[in-house]
Design a binder for these strands. Structure first.
Lengths: 136, 136, 136, 136
DNA sequence: GTGGTCTAGACCACG
DNA sequence: GTGGTCTAGACCACT
């Protein structure tokens, strides 16, 4: 089934992440959370740009990144659609990115003086919103 | 007792974090992990710069950040030393930073297709190396 | 509403404070005094550097400090903007900083042989320009 | 009456001020507070250096500054003594220094969100410890 | 265009 | 020797 609904995502001006990053993250989450399913169509570059009041170049860049990362699929003349299969990174690359993310995260929170339980709980809660397997 | 040992830290060129950020993260961890204790001296700006093959300015920037954040203490003409930690941030700011870090972390790993158990396990393991309380 | 006016600030060569410090102080005052309001844009790094005849790095350093201290907000590619202020420091840290500032101030003026009335009057006058509550 | 007592001053390692500055400030305060009176002798450079566990050069430098600023008087072969008259700066210089100190002080406290009453009260209290005239 | 980072090299104050 | 500051110029990512 193929739908083409306006994406429910918003850009927060206070967010330190670049806008394109906010878009890619949001789309990834919508897909990971099951709100966008394989085959679903995405808003046009111009449409989303207008909806979010950002530069079309920024949206195009975000879409391009999502496409090269395997989240989206371009069908000539039709537009972009959520891809069936998004596994694309090599195991080594995945592991490296996980390490890096953990590193950065721990570096961010290590000085905040929260007990590890609290930190892990918050991460678990956030992860639970998405369609990730609980165990391998 | 005051020591001044060569820090066991390394800069990874593939890491997207800026070099200064890698340094601050590493030092924070050494302190949080108890490997560097209050009063211990740090390698000189020039020394560490040479050891890591980076520009002294970059090390100085990292040290300056750690100093203004309260991790280090500068004694003119003598060098930098590990400070006794105090609580520097308001509760609101701490909470905001935790939220931000969690958000970013989840955004980073959500697409890697790891089961949440694996992700949480890696974070827990990493946290266990440091002097953080386990529970509140 | 977002403005981007040339800041009315000047660098005094005789001032012992480092240039970057003079800039951060001036900007803080403009914000605290209400002359710069949340959302207002700041002069570009290069622009202000030229206006003040200092190196862009020096301005960038000042801006970076103001950003990490929560006064400014950086939007990539767009520039820097005045943030809405939040309480970032813990009560203990605030108290410590007040103590330190008072100590230093008294140390600076104690030898100038001004009557305490004059000193307090000058401070009061200076403070009155800003958006500080008069009483708790 | 001429005494030569060990100065009751101490160096705090955590203090960000350079050691020489801590010494000059302390001596100024002892004089301003009346604990050291005109004609009193000061400890020898070597003696004070040993007492404070600092480099004799540092003490010598502090004494030299106090002498050129008119707080101390050198009597050949006898040592240093508290001067009778310490007014030495031109009115313009005094005014400039007061302005600068006020500037710096306000810059330091403006972001701490204390009501001006609190700030002024703390300054007044601190000033009251010294031998300053209340009014002109 | 914007800010952010890094390198290179100089000069200062401090001990 | 130490850290701190400033200048100069390059390159990057973002809009």
């Amino acid at each position: 089934m193929s739908r083409r609904a306006p994406l429910m995502l918003q850009i927060v001006t206070g967010d330190p992440r670049p806008i394109a990053r906010q878009i890619t993250d949001s789309v990834k989450r919508l897909i990971a959370g099951g709100e966008l399913q394989a085959g679903d169509g995405l808003p046009s570059v111009r449409g989303l740009a207008q909806q979010l009041s950002v530069n079309p170049n920024t949206v195009a860049k975000a879409y391009a990144e999502l496409t090269t990362e395997g989240w989206l699929l371009s069908r000539a003349g039709l537009g972009l659609f959520v891809a069936e299969q998004r596994q694309r990174l090599s195991d080594g690359e995945r592991a490296r990115r996980l390490d890096e993310a953990v590193d950065r995260f721990v570096g961010d929170v290590i000085g905040l003086d929260y007990p590890s339980d609290t930190i892990l709980g918050r991460v678990a809660e956030e992860l639970s919103h998405y369609d990730v397997k609980k165990t391998a």
